[in-house]
Amino acid sequence: MTTQILISGFGGQGVLFAGKFIAYKGLLEEKEVSWLPSYGPEMRGGTASCSIIISDEAVGSPIIANPDVLIAMNLPSLDKYEPACVPGAKLFLDETLITRKVTRTDVEAFYIPATQLARDAGIPTLGNMILAGNMIRETGIVAMEGVEEVLKKVISAKHADLLQANLHALQIGYQYTKEML
């Protein structure tokens, strides 16, 4: 099986980091993975995105045209990528920042007030990991078990103090439930 995950938001929301975390989790589960960032001028203050592929087979093209999973952290990201998602795709939206609903009826949407939940928990910059946690729960693409080991690999020694906060954010997202709209 091959899953194509696209994460998109403003530069600074931790889009690339969340993507690296998911890709590394896949790697440690002995899957084939690729991670490709947008590195154009748009990531300097505009929309940043990254494409993660997790597969049982060798990854061909690392470029994603039609995601199976979309994590959208701002409205421009939803506007841009909602039409591109495959039918049956799972969309994870930061409800605090995206006020509109998904218009397509052939995809599953999960609305998580990630930014608000992060603020309430005193970790205001970790909405990205709350969304990642919820994505793990709802898709099962990678397991929640062993995430701490992955965080140790993706968080640099300089920021080691943020490991617990990231773990907390993942757990908030993983536990968050609301009736699907």
Binding site: K20, V33, W35, P37
Partner: peptide, 10 residues
């Protein structure tokens, strides 16, 4: 090329 340089893989 830019893709090869920027992408991460195992």
């Amino acid at each position: 090329d830019g893709t090869m340089g920027q992408m991460m893989e195992p």
